[in-house]
């Protein structure tokens, strides 16, 4: 029989950082059940794409001789950035809407000492982790294909993460602000897929009609692609790099502000 304490100690409220980590920890815990499947596809997808497009299609492109680079070297870093975008998008659409609307994970978290800021921060950190691990695998595969000639390629990893988060943060806001999953289909078809196809991943933007070139330059993906390409190939100029990082950071920052607004509106209004 344990003796009851004479004085009830006031319970310590966990710090803001540890509360955010608690939210992060939830997503990591969930991932334990599904990680096997994602590992297989995160390794196989880059291998398949680089083999089919980089080497197979590359044979045709290199025979054509119209692109200065070897096609594999051109394509690989572009795919790295595009994959960061796709992973971030995938992890930010249904999981966020589900946590608000269906599974109501966020509401469960709000019943603990976690605040909206912790919930948002923890989940964003989780997406950053997923983007980084996926990109790291991609980068290793690129190196194994002999398509990463420079040590600067190591810096492409944080660059890919930044690129991914430039999508994740605004999509968090979109998922929280827009109440129906029908919006996701439109987002994928009219935003993500066109960016994937036209933002410099598969061919230089300069081949597009002039007006469309400027549209491509405005997309965050082009900045991510150009940054990753410069770093992997070892040709990145500092001024350009700073410009890309700055532009992508704007998207991250703007996205976080918007996501914070919509999260508060959805979670605090309904309790």
């Amino acid at each position: 029989m344990a003796q009851a304490p004479a004085v009830v100690q006031p319970r310590k409220v966990p710090s803001a950082w540890s509360r955010t980590c608690a939210s992060l920890g939830f997503w990591a815990f969930q991932y334990r059940r599904t990680w096997r499947g994602t590992v297989v596809s995160s390794i196989l997808t880059p291998v398949l794409f680089l083999a089919a497009m980089g080497i197979g299609l590359g044979t045709l492109v290199d025979e054509g001789g119209r692109l200065g680079d070897e096609y594999l070297l051109f394509l690989a870093p572009g795919l790295l950035a595009a994959t960061a975008m796709q992973t971030a998008t995938f992890e930010s659409m249904y999981p966020v809407m589900g946590a608000i609307k269906w599974v109501r994970t966020y509401h469960a978290m709000l019943a603990t000492p976690l605040g909206v800021g912790n919930i948002l921060g923890g989940h964003l950190l989780w997406v950053a982790f997923r983007v980084t691990t996926t990109a790291a695998i991609y980068l290793v595969v690129i190196a194994l294909f002999g398509a990463a000639p420079s040590l600067l390629a190591l810096l492409a990893l944080p660059a890919a993460t930044l690129c991914g988060m430039a999508f994740a943060a605004p999509i968090f806001a979109f998922a929280a602000g827009y109440d129906s999953p029908a919006g996701f289909a439109a987002l994928e078809r009219f935003v993500i897929v066109p960016m994937f196809l036209f933002s410099g991943t598969f061919f230089p933007v300069s081949q597009l009609p002039e007006a469309l070139q400027w549209v491509a330059y405005a997309t965050p993906l082009w900045h991510g692609v150009d940054l990753c390409r410069g770093l992997v190939q070892g040709t990145q100029e500092l001024a350009d790099a700073l410009m890309h990082v700055g532009y992508l950071s704007l998207w991250v920052g703007g996205g976080v502000v918007a996501a914070n607004y919509f999260f508060r509106r959805r979670l605090e209004a309904t309790g």
């Binding site: 025979e63 054509g64 289909a185 897929v193 598969f202 061919f203 081949q207």
Partner: peptide, 24 residues
Amino acid sequence: SGFFEPLFYLLSIGVGIGALVGSV
């Protein structure tokens, strides 16, 4: 909207990769 995806692919290949490859 489902129609647009293959269309985008076609345009991307026509304008981009097609221009790089030329002919097969």
